[in-house]
Design a protein around this nucleic acid. Structure first.
Lengths: 203, 203, 203, 203
DNA sequence: AATGAATGAGGCTTCATTCAT
DNA sequence: TATGAATGAAGCCTCATTCAT
């Protein structure tokens, strides 16, 4: 029905599966049941199409998180964090292509769009980090969380946990993944209590 | 003499940065200071080159982990796990291309090699998972770890933690990443203690 | 509009002159005043183009022979055979490339198409042989031909005669070739009378 | 043992099967169990190799016919012609590649060697034609043959018959080919008797 | 909005050939 | 005599893109 939307969806799938260069306009066109030339009625060129997909994805997520924030305004911070975690995993389950596209965009963005893509992703990540940081800060203020780590550090850790867990689902079908993923969160949460900083060095 | 090695290294870099389709033989050849045709003295075709890179990578890791296992045979399990975690992060720091290539291979393997690549990766993952599981099992036996979760589940969680943390470094240069990464491990470790299983559902 | 036709004609010429491998797509494209890529709007690939040429040729011939059969339904069998012979030679004179292509297709078909080509040619040959056999049979029934040889054997002989004579024209410009070719037919026809089978052995 | 000879034989096979352009040096080398570069120890280049094969073939045949001529000096002309026919067919049976190569060389000689090849073949053909003509002339003188056709015309016809019959064997495996081929010769020979020249026209 | 035909650039691969060994 | 590595040219094909319709 809505051709543009269909193109976007198919483009997302193929960019996710085959990478920017591996996903040819022909392929996307064929799947959309339109001609290659037809795509150019909607998008100036391949780069334009890619950016459109990316923007779509970012907008969709941003909107979601904003609504979430509103709705859970008064919930406990544990609940809010747990909720964030679960939503992310659910996305990985229901729309693995979203995660794949997102990761691909970070690891190997289209050569010619490297800068633009990196900036957009960075902005989106910062938006989410800020939301997480806020929750941790609130959690500390409310006494829910006791830890010597800064809220920013915790936000980064949490973000990383989410990405790792999402990927885990996309990459590997392992047995009993629900248990595993929830285990991750639990361990994380349970670890959120005072403890002396360690002195290990990575480099 | 070591032209082959040089080709492999450059191929790894470009496959990691641009994806399989984005990394052209010309590019790899130019970087190696050889002609495109020259590459074909060493590798039957692009797929062959890709598989060679992948095999190289897998062999290198496998060898590392086996040595590690030998050397740390008598260390505490916390130390052994911590060590595994740190080594992975160090790899991400020193050779981000390895991680990038590895992730790309999972998320979007070359279309024509999908099955082969998936199998190789799966085998490699299982090898590591077994190693981790063994450590958790030993940790429980030694009383270091108290948790209702199965060792396999813990292994999966740990593996996921490592991949997440590695990617985190590759994708984003964030401030004070050492602290963040170690925080993740700490929280994980501290959480390893008895607690009632939760009843959340993801789907 | 008739670009496809032009491609087919040029392809026939070049396949005939240079063989499948010697006839490059560039060459065919240049002659057709189109880009190499342009050919791919009409033919999937080189093999496809080759097969199209072959099919065209076969279809053209089949159609011709069928019409001929209709038109000469009531003529004497000598006339019908003479006519077949002359038509074949005329083709060799007017369109030597047809004969060249046809022979090449039999002697050294494209490596990758060996089976398909052989089958198509075989079918076409059998069609013609059946037509010839029919004429010889009719000739015998009508008392025009007296010979101990089977009609099938005669058909094969006649077919062979025609191919030999056609090639003769294509390969060598010899003096007074009309006389020579007709001599061949005459000798053949005059020989069609009773005679005891010979006992020579070839191998 | 004799590497050069082996190369020549394999080259003949592949030139015959795949044509000049289709037969790559790699292919010939591989079959000879030598390196591509190794061939260049014996032949200056591909053209040189091709010409060597052709010369070899021509010399072999010439030698054969000269010997034959000597040996059958006193036989009847029917026997001598029959013998020539049978030898040719036997060659087609035992060494189809020779015939294939020979036809290919006529129909589509290597582009760059067109002139040289054509001249060599022409010379070889003329040599044989002269031999045939001589036999027909002698046959007439001896009263074995009665026909209004010139000996040269008969020689051409006979040559054509032989090529047609040889090809027939190479191209198509048909049932009872011995009978067919001999039928051809018989019909030809039986036709060699006086008869009024016909007035058909080919063009 | 959508198409079919066409294009120039570039991708992967093979080719004939050379050269140092 | 023979090799392995290397090369420049060329071959087939696909790509992103355009344009007239």
């Amino acid at each position: 029905m809505n051709t543009k939307q269909t193109i976007l969806e198919n483009a997302l799938q193929f960019f996710a599966s085959y990478g920017y260069d591996g996903a040819s306009m022909s392929l996307i066109a064929r799947e959309t049941q339109i001609t290659k030339a037809g795509i150019y009625s909607y998008f100036k060129n391949k780069e334009d199409l890619y950016i459109a997909v990316l923007d779509h994805l970012i907008a969709f997520h941003k909107e979601y998180w904003i609504k979430k924030k509103q709705r859970l305004k008064s919930a406990s911070n544990e609940k809010r964090l747990k909720d964030s975690f679960i939503f992310s995993i659910q996305t990985a389950v229901k729309e693995p292509a979203l995660i794949a596209f997102w990761q691909m965009a970070q690891i190997s963005p289209p050569r010619s769009l490297e800068q633009v893509v990196t900036e957009k992703i960075s902005a989106s990540r910062n938006f989410l980090l800020a939301y997480f940081e806020e929750m941790f800060e609130a959690g500390k203020a409310a006494g829910e969380i006791e830890t010597p780590h800064s809220s920013l550090t915790l936000a980064h850790s949490f973000y990383c946990l989410i990405e790792g867990a999402s990927l885990k689902h996309v990459n590997a079908n392992f047995p009993d993944y629900e248990a595993t993923l929830l285990t991750i969160f639990e361990l994380f949460w349970d670890g959120l209590e005072a403890r002396e900083a360690d002195e290990w060095k990575i480099v």
